[in-house]
Amino acid sequence: MKTQIRIAIKMFVLFTLLLGLAYPLLITGIAQIAFPKKANGSLIIQGNKVIGSELIGQKFDSIIYFSSRPSAPDYGALPSGGSNLGPTSQKLKQLVDERAAQFAEFNQLHASETIPSEMVFASASGLDPHISPRAAMVQVERISKFRNLNEIQKVQLTELVNTMSESPQFGLFGKERVNVLLLNLKLDRIY
């Protein structure tokens, strides 16, 4: 038994060094050489300021930007998370009704138009960077109006949403989606 305890301690130290130190450091080394931008958070840098990460959603509720999804931590990334409200939650029901009414009014939608469901439900991470292309499309009218775009520019903006829409990855995986932060960055640059 004593032998086993002695072996256990030695094995534990060895495995801790191998798996807790050597392995993560090896991966960090490889990652920093092979994919430096991605390994460091896919940051977007303008001038010498970090304005965000391509992967992390930001809060957009301004009238001149494409809105992002509702978020339980309101896009504060510490900590991330969802609302964890269940399918029979009165609170969730109220929130969804409010958001739907607000989104419809904000974007002057007709009563007949259904609202894209991701715009009234909060994401899992609270940091979802994407919305569906349709959710972006229904906001084009409002943005054109408040950025004083003419008809030609409005058509161009529609095209921009189309070009910024990512197809399923490798034509196969996941959903079609638009990165709201990247779209709004483009929007600022052009108009």
Binding site: R69, S83, S117, F121, D128, H130, I131, G174, K175, R177
Partner: peptide, 12 residues
């Protein structure tokens, strides 16, 4: 509405 509560757009 199909429920997207607690789900990410990229996964659906």
């Amino acid at each position: 509405l199909s429920s997207m509560e607690g789900k990410e757009t990229r996964f659906g």
